[in-house]
Write a protein that binds this DNA or RNA. Structure first.
Lengths: 229, 229
DNA sequence: CGAGACTTTGAAATCTGTCAACTGGGGTGG
DNA sequence: CCACCCCAGTTGACAGATTTCAAAGTCTCG
């Protein structure tokens, strides 16, 4: 759709943002800071450079010719981006929040293999989600996954509760979970009404009953709309 | 569901078959021959040994607690089994045909990484299939994938046509494609009636119009029931 | 205050799943 | 050798979950 020539450390944004400042150089590794909705690399283009996510959320996605989009993975702090994408990238990478990246120069075999194995395991678990879970189960799984990856920054709104920032929009979640925006929204309200999570602002979610949520995510329990517990 | 202790080179079958003969030793690598519906390793157990498929079809699958099953990947000749399964296997491996395996002793880094990347790429493509493709598109994709992996043995029933053995049953395909047996069957007959494939015995399929099938698989074209072309 | 993007909610449409019956081939046993 | 059984596959009718279409509400930002 757009002509693009991406080379290492030469990142461009798709919509209008292009925020690539080398950032204060404390030590050796090159650090990038990207604003939300920046494109790290595009499907079909020359192999992407490799980064490690320091902070924020990156989405990997594939698209069908008619525009249908599938988000393959959500990548949070600590994980690698740009591995397992094939020679000509088989997917695009887009930031869903302000993101801090660290360029990876030396690719340790052991580390690369761990990263690749993690990609495989996550992709396989996601395939099971997409192929066999119901909409509420998918949403419950997504909430727990994101909570796990993005817990740190804003945890503990109140004692005993887990509160975190949901970077992807409902639309992003839909593309990740193989659903539509409306279905995702409906599932969120159902889960909220069941007393399992809470949110006023749709991006800031509090986990009230993570254990029950996990049971639903695993398919071993249905949502009952009998609030409370 | 069953108590199992699988150790390297100690393979057991689930139903009743257990056919593990060391096979004629031409040279060094250990060769295994398994009958259909043998279990290579099970989800949740100690890390599986690694093999290369010489001939036949192996399915990797995950199961939800209530029995829902998702086949993650179909593995044919030349590919590796037992990589990217995590410490405690996150998936089971089952043979869908008579299978010849070659034990892998030396794990070359480059080779392992290629194998892992292939697993990632296939899993991601499959996630897009599961999340965003319609039933006919999924079945078309599956036929082409399997044709590509299993073409060799019985190719060329007639000149110009591609004919191959479809190892997975309709049920296996359903679990792979996130559908039901009935839907898979209906899609096969639709694709057959559209003149894109042919089969008398449900396991032996002839590709009549691979190009059209590819367009359908990619989502850039719908099935028209106006036979012929 | 208004524009636009995102979210939520409702009602109708549709694809796929569920249930059920029928078919055909392979294997077993008389 | 033939009858019978069993399982995979096919087909039809119906139900249900999710999508589609439509509209209103909310929040941010200029």
């Amino acid at each position: 759709m757009l002509q693009f020539s991406l080379k290492a450390a030469n990142v461009r944004a798709l919509p209008s943002q292009l925020l690539v400042e080398p950032a204060p150089t404390h030590h050796s590794p090159t650090v990038l800071r990207l604003s939300p909705r920046s494109t790290l690399f595009l499907e079909g283009y020359a192999r992407a450079p490799q980064y490690r996510v320091v902070e924020g959320c990156v989405a990997l996605s594939q698209s069908l010719s008619d525009g249908r989009r599938q988000i393959i993975d959500m990548i949070g702090p600590g994980r690698m981006v740009g591995i397992g994408v094939g020679e000509r990238n088989r997917c695009s990478a887009e930031t869903l929040s302000y993101v801090t990246l660290e360029a990876i120069d030396s690719v340790d075999h052991a580390e690369l293999e761990r990263g690749l194995e993690e990609m495989v395991l996550r992709a396989q678990a996601h395939a099971t989600l997409l192929g066999r879970k119901t909409a509420p189960e998918r949403v419950a799984s997504a909430i727990l996954d994101l909570a796990d990856q993005f817990l740190r920054p804003s945890r503990g709104c109140k004692r005993n509760t887990i509160c975190f920032n949901l970077h992807p929009t409902r639309g992003d979640l839909a593309d990740w979970l193989g659903l539509t925006v409306e279905t995702v929204s409906r599932c969120f309200t159902r889960i909220k009404k069941a007393g399992l999570i809470d949110f006023n602002h749709p991006e800031i979610v509090t986990l009230l009953q993570p254990a029950t949520l996990a049971e639903i995510a695993a398919g071993s329990r249905a949502i009952d709309n009998t609030n409370q517990a």
